[in-house]
Amino acid sequence: MMEHKILIAGFGGQGVMLMGQLLCLGAFLERKKVLMLPAYGGEQRGGTSNCTIIISDEDIGSPSVRRYDTIVAMNQPSFNTFHGFLREGGQILTNKSMVELPEEDGRTTAVEIPILETAARLGSERAANMVMLGALTAACGMVGKAFVQQAVVSELGKKRPDMIELNLAALDAGYSIMSDPCPVK
């Protein structure tokens, strides 16, 4: 059975829930079993925000997860709080400009993703979460990029058709960063 457990964590306003929803929709479009459990503080903007996503070939059991296969840390508190929940051999993707990695502990595999710089280079820092979504799509390997692209077009295309080109370019750039042969710290 193939099953992948993901945590995306950050603060409200970074697009944590949106990333989760788009990855789930991509997985659904690829006919995978998928579950998302959101958790957030009282604030929509600025409060803590995280979501668990489980993508599987079979029916999914508990939404509560002991060890994650992949963790996305969008800010320092998220990294500090959750990196201990990574399974051995799992991977953490960090928002490079906001997360300072600790000294090498030989256990955690962290990949720093320059999401803000990449998004700014493409046209707007607001697409930073799409860069991370692309990197996450490549890292988890459970959902084809084409299905996540389809999810982005269907969900974001309606609201901001003028932004769709940027969002897709950001998604693509994030996916490519993870394809770089040596980003691992």
Binding site: Q21, C24, F28, V34, L35, M36, L37, P38, P63, S64
Partner: peptide, 9 residues
């Protein structure tokens, strides 16, 4: 609370 808050297809 779990059934109420999870998202599934």
């Amino acid at each position: 609370g779990c059934i109420g808050n999870i998202r599934e297809a």
